[in-house]
Computed example of a mutant assay.
Amino acid sequence: MTLTIVLAACGNSNGNNENNDTEGSGDNNTNDEIDLGQTELQIGTDDYVSNLVNTYLAKLLLEEIGYTVEVNQTDVGVQYTGLADGTTDVIVGAWLPYTHASYWEEYQDDLEQISTVTEEVELGLVVPSYMEDINSIEDLRDNKNDIGEQLEWEITGISPGAGQMQLMENEVIPGYDLNDWTLVESSGAAMSASLSDAISNEEPIVVTLWTPHWTFNEFDLKILDDPQNRFGDPDDILSVSRTGFQEDSPAAYQLISQFNITKEDTQNMMFDVQEGMDPEEAAQKFMDDNPDLVEEWLEGIN
């Protein structure tokens, strides 16, 4: 299905449209035609709430301008294979250049980076702030205050396919000689539940965590120092599409290229999900509460 919408150029922001024929008005008041193009879109995400809420926010924005959007929730690897084989059009949760590096290296010839969605997101090992003497990954290695025995030598992780788990296995554990420790596979939700339970009982716990995440709104947490920088410098979250997406759905591509959000705003939506909303409800609430941001994302399109 191919549609065409007529868009007012966004160069003139003073609202004065009475002088369109006067000399010097130039290109600020010209109209451009932009095709919606293919209107049925597939947008991919994993099951981590930070990516889910941003994906549903992008879905609602795309629907606002006339697209029909289906969200495909899979694991990270399937997201990238879907982009590479064309069954997925776009994602807004690519953690690069570090966390998703292995997927990018494998599939980059069939992918296109569009824009930065969120700047400087961090990965790390996290503990509650009441664990006052545990401040560095080196404290785990050195078994400071018998922390290993207290935790039965377990670090609570997330799903095995996640980029952070790969970094733990390939960089953090060997780099810090954490060979006495076991990285326990679970899921994002199970990790959060374990963290909440431990904090409610003021018990020690070490988890793999990242920003943005709702737990930083709810609890007093600290990311352990990483003096060897084994987790790498902070990633950016990027939007990535299959090749040909811009040509096939140009208005969608333009919207995604204008879509960016702060860690704090993402965490607020995540907190709404934790309080009982589903991700799409939380995204709709955010749009309703932030009309100026919505207007910014849709500038020149609607």
Rank of each mutant, 00 (worst) to 15 (best):
G244A: 10
T118I: 02
I301Q: 01
I91H: 01
F231C: 00
T118D: 00
T2E: 15
L167R: 05
S186G: 12
M191C: 12
Q38T: 15
Q254D: 11
I223M: 09
N17W: 15
Q113E: 14
Y48E: 08
G175K: 04
V69Q: 01
L151I: 08
Q73M: 13
E138P: 01
V184Q: 08
N143Y: 11
V240Y: 01
D248I: 08
D89C: 05
N260R: 07
T4D: 13
G24C: 08
G86T: 14
L96S: 03
I137G: 00
G124Q: 01
E299Q: 07
L195I: 01
T262V: 06
Y253K: 03
R230T: 08
S136Y: 04
S115P: 02
L52C: 02
E23S: 11
E169C: 05
D21M: 13
F216Y: 12
G11P: 03
G86K: 06
L60V: 10
D35W: 11
T182E: 14
N260Y: 09
V207F: 03
D146E: 14
T118W: 01
T211Q: 04
E138W: 08
P227H: 09
S239G: 07
V90I: 15
K285H: 15
I199G: 00
P291Q: 05
E169G: 08
Q38V: 15
G175A: 05
P234I: 03
Q108Y: 14
E132K: 13
V127L: 04
K263H: 05
T88D: 05
N290Q: 09
L255G: 00
D27P: 08
A101D: 12
N179S: 13
Q254K: 13
E295I: 14
Y176G: 01
N201A: 14
T68I: 15
E247T: 15
E218L: 11
D272S: 12
L209G: 02
T2C: 08
N51Y: 07
D21T: 15
E119F: 14
V78P: 00
N302E: 11
E64P: 06
Q79E: 14
T4N: 13
E122T: 08
Y107H: 10
V172A: 02
I199C: 03
W95F: 11
